Amino acid sequence: MNRFAGKVALVTGSSNGIGRATGILFAQEGAKVTITGRNTQRLEETRQTILKSGIPESHVLAIPADLATEEGQDKLINETVKKFGHLNILVNNAGTAFSDAEGRIGLDQPVSDFDKVMRINLRSVVTLTQKAKDHLIKAKGEVVNVSSIAGGQQAMTGAMYYAMTKSALDQFTRSTAIGLIDHGVRVNSVSPGVVVTGIGEAIGMPEGAFEKMAKLLESHKECLPCGKAAQPIDIANIIAFLADRKLSSYIIGQSIVADGGSSLIMGMNTLDMTSILTSP
Results as ranks from 00 to 15, higher is better:
Ala209Asp: 13
Gly103Lys: 04
Leu107Thr: 14
Ala97His: 10
Asp182Gly: 15
Gly85Met: 05
Ser275His: 10
Thr274Ser: 13
Leu122Trp: 02
Gly30His: 03
Ile203Thr: 09
Lys32Arg: 14
Lys116Thr: 14
Ala5Cys: 11
Lys221Ile: 13
Lys82His: 15
Arg104Met: 10
Ile50Tyr: 05
Val257Ile: 15
Lys75Val: 08
Val91Tyr: 01
Phe210Ala: 14
Val111His: 12
Thr69Trp: 09
Asp272Asn: 15
Asp66Met: 04
Lys212Asp: 15
Thr40Ser: 12
Tyr161His: 11
Ser255Thr: 09
Arg245Glu: 13
Gly227Ser: 11
Ile50Thr: 00
Gly253Tyr: 07
Ile50Leu: 06
Met164Phe: 05
Glu211Ser: 08
Gly17Thr: 03
Ser189Thr: 07
Ala229His: 10
Gly72Val: 07
Met266Tyr: 15
Thr278Asn: 15
Val125Trp: 08
His86Trp: 06
Asn2Phe: 03
Asp113Met: 13
Gly106Asn: 08
Glu29Phe: 03
Met1His: 11
Cys223Lys: 12
Leu25Val: 02
Ala163Asn: 08
Lys131Tyr: 05
Ser175Lys: 02
Ile18Trp: 00
Ile181Asn: 11
Ser175Gln: 09
Pro225Met: 10
Asn93Ile: 03
Thr22Ser: 12
Leu169Met: 13
Met273Leu: 14
Gly141Met: 04
Thr46Gly: 03
Ala240Glu: 03
Arg38Leu: 05
Phe114Cys: 05
Ser58Gln: 12
Val91Gln: 01
Gly179Lys: 10
Ala5Met: 12
Ile77Glu: 08
Pro232Ile: 00
Phe172Ile: 09
Ile178Thr: 14
Leu51Tyr: 05
Met160Ser: 13
